[in-house]
Design a protein around this nucleic acid. Structure first.
Lengths: 190, 190
DNA sequence: GTAGTTTTGTGACGATTGTCACAGGACTAG
DNA sequence: CTAGTCCTGTGACAATCGTCACAAAACTAC
């Protein structure tokens, strides 16, 4: 739980008392490769803090897998819409490696938040961070070409490129696998 | 302020007392067409609740305008990253019509939130809604072609198409103005 | 080690897109 | 009303992309 505590302290003031109050909402959990953290059609009742390994979110559109996000150590993975609105998730979250996460149980988190304002503030910070990331990636598509998006990832999020296979990366970049391969080729030539 | 109160009630429980405590953080403000709500390089210290009119967020990339968001009545416009992190905004928010907004002052909002948990929860709800929207639009680019994105907007966000000119819409859809024109043509033929 | 699977690169070809250029129509300010 | 501006459509052409097909390379499981 050490990593999580450091992560929390990087976001907000957090007393030992708040940490104690938060404990009932937390549980450590292990996933094997290809285990689901969240499945399409289910309501998302958790935030997943990733301790080790990584996972991805993806849509299954007519049998085609479309990856929409990758989550590494010290990231929070969740379906923020389903988590907040209680609507069914339209996408899946799946472990890409053996994965260790700390699960925030929604109900117990809310109970804890009622007892300590710092926990409420922590929730707000997590959601804000999540929103910032979504905004960042959303704007990539409006501002840049596929090649520029790849460059952006290399500079700003190298961990994705180091750990995710190019096949997996392609749909995240919004292009076909073959196109990503050619973008890399073009770039090496020039 | 009536619309705002209805909006708040649609998000969360909110007592009259919380409403009173919130007042010092609120101020109504008018913008003329092409007035800036937020300018590149400044820190975003406000949430803008839109009462009437609409505005847009855009990047200026080497002199080219790239629209990243449109905000209508009952939307909240802000730079969520700058608002939370105190970093300078990389984009602008500008009125596209005469605009009436209710400004949430960040500092006073935080003071009010300390005094009433309902205000804290309101902040969380606003951010969560914002995150959901970003996620939705971010995924559009990973899941769909430009034509499918246009269809999606027509079905799910018709107000954008009714009120925003096609020239303005193009960069939001991530294509050139001419391409949007051709997509519309193709669709009418088939 | 071996067989099977996954990943990556590449050729071919048609479809789509970006860019530049131009023109007509709609809108606006005086 | 008129001049200027903004918006939309379209032609031409090169660049890029998606799709299908195939093969080599890398990785896995036993």
């Amino acid at each position: 739980m050490d990593n999580l505590l450091k992560y929390i302290h990087s976001l907000t003031e957090f007393s030992e008392q708040s940490w104690e109050l938060l404990q009932p909402a937390l549980s450590k959990r292990e996933f094997k490769k290809n285990d689901f953290l969240l499945q399409e059609g289910n309501i998302c009742n958790s935030l997943f803090y990733i301790e080790s390994g990584y996972c991805k979110s993806y849509y299954n559109i007519d049998g085609t897998i479309k990856n929409t996000g990758f989550f590494f150590e010290n990231d929070i993975a969740t379906n923020i819409n389903s988590f907040g609105s209680e609507e069914k998730s339209e996408f899946n979250i799946i472990a890409c490696e053996p994965l260790t996460v700390i699960v925030f149980n929604k109900q117990k988190l809310f109970e804890a938040a009622k007892q300590a304002r710092e926990i409420e503030a922590l929730g707000r910070s997590c959601i804000r961070l999540f929103a910032s990331k979504q905004e960042e990636f959303s704007n990539l598509f409006k501002l840049y070409t596929a090649q520029e998006r790849l460059n952006y990832l290399e500079v700003n999020h190298p961990s994705i490129l180091q750990r995710v296979s190019l096949s997996q990366l392609a749909s995240f970049l919004g292009v076909a696998r073959e196109t990503l391969s050619r973008i890399r080729k073009r770039r090496n030539l020039r």
